[in-house]
Design a binder for these strands. Structure first.
Lengths: 237, 237
DNA sequence: TAAATAGTGTCTCTAAGACATTATGTG
DNA sequence: CACATAATGTCTTAGAGACACTATTTA
């Protein structure tokens, strides 16, 4: 690795530990949830924490996030996006630890979650009812992740990650409402989503109590480079 | 530091090195520039690079960014914002190095830049005419920083960082044009900025060849929590 | 036919963009 | 006065939001 060791001494600087932590969201019975693990060891044993762990030297940050998520919770094949790097000095009592935080979003029904032997339990928590005490500065990370998720929703196609292969337009609307935390107008939603040309109609329908619903498929390739797909901000202050 | 050393072994994991790198922007003769330093040592000796360096164990990331910027370039008292953390495995030939990148923005005339003994030179480069070969993956970091700066401009009051205490509305418009890389309509700009209520009129004027200009002062406290102050996107594709 | 849910139509109003016009200084 | 630059006014249009209406199923 070192081609000219005479000029560089890798031990000259003390190094911090680095973890990746993944805030993973899903929708369960129409409500936004995050996945937390209950720690088995010191520090913060017994506390709930964002899943994550130390990086290896031979993997990228994103790979590390993916690996830790799978190891600690069983969750796999997710969309991952870097959120922020937290590096205050006293945030971990063990030693100096930086945390590179990621956001992920999955369909809960497509995942089997399980605890690893590093943790006592793994559980989905509604974001409106998180545990009182959370390990490290993970409450701060969570708050930041939630606010980022909301704003991301407005100019990306993130919400589709939460939907199955085919879905109705009103289901999609429901997801927006849950994450944004506000009601949206049905007519305006239909208009916008149709204009966006992101959906492809299928021949399928689903029967319910009233008129059956047409089902649609998401066509990510049609999003192309056009940003700001959605901007549902009906008179928000 | 370790309260229960029996359960935690800090040497269990190998640790990466961590640097902070700061992409610092300014406007010089109406054009957007970034500050680069020319490296004195291996690796990439002689190449231009984003200023930065290894973090100390007892300082936060933001403090480290501030310190490195001052040490390497003499630039101080800047607005700093975290950009992204770069962590691909082979990005530094010495060893595994993560870079936590920051963006800063300053008025060039308020800064005295100077090289440290770690570097051969320090210089402002126009973003439209950067050096051909840049150290590490710093070209990627630069590209990302520029794109982030542009989008930030639309919903923050970042641009005011580049202005002196008092300034004219057309000067402000000019900054927007330079950073966004497009012409803006004068009338619409006046309308928007007046509506925003971010400026306070002074009694000052400045004489030029034509009608003298009124000068204004930025009132950051009026921005309050309202986001999306600007959205100058006159028919951009 | 009533209830339930899906889906469409349309009016209003704001704000963006284009562009014309007026204002106020200098030589 | 002509010229230069600053500042304001106004017309058009697209799109957001509100909300009323129609459609299609089951009980």
């Amino acid at each position: 690795m070192q081609e000219r060791p005479e000029t560089y001494d890798p031990t000259r600087y003390e190094r911090p530990s680095v973890t990746v932590d993944v805030v993973i969201f899903t929708l369960i019975s129409q409500e936004l949830h995050v996945l937390l693990v209950q720690r088995r060891h010191w520090p913060f044993d017994g506390f709930w924490a964002i899943p994550g762990g130390f990086i290896n030297m031979n993997e990228s940050l994103r790979d590390a996030a993916r690996r830790e998520l799978e190891e600690e919770t069983g969750v796999r094949d997710v969309y991952l996006e870097q959120l922020y790097t937290f590096g205050e000095v006293g945030r971990d009592p063990r030693t100096r630890v930086l945390s590179v935080a990621y956001i992920a979003i999955v369909r809960a029904d497509a995942q089997k979650i399980r605890a690893s032997d590093e943790s006592l339990d793994v559980r989905w928590f509604p974001v409106r009812d998180l545990p009182e005490h959370i390990a490290f500065d993970h409450d701060e990370i969570l708050a930041y992740a939630i606010s980022r998720l909301r704003s991301k929703l407005e100019y990306t196609t993130l919400a589709f990650q939460l939907l199955p292969e085919v879905f109705s337009i009103l289901e999609l609307k429901h997801i927006y409402e849950q994450i944004l935390g506000e009601k949206l107008d049905k007519g305006n939603f239909y208009r916008k989503i149709k204009e966006s040309d992101l959906l492809e109609e299928t021949t399928l329908t689903r029967e319910g109590r009233g008129r059956p619903t047409r089902l649609w498929r998401f066509r990510p390739e049609r999003a192309g480079d056009k940003q700001f797909v959605f901007r549902w901000r009906e008179d928000r202050k």
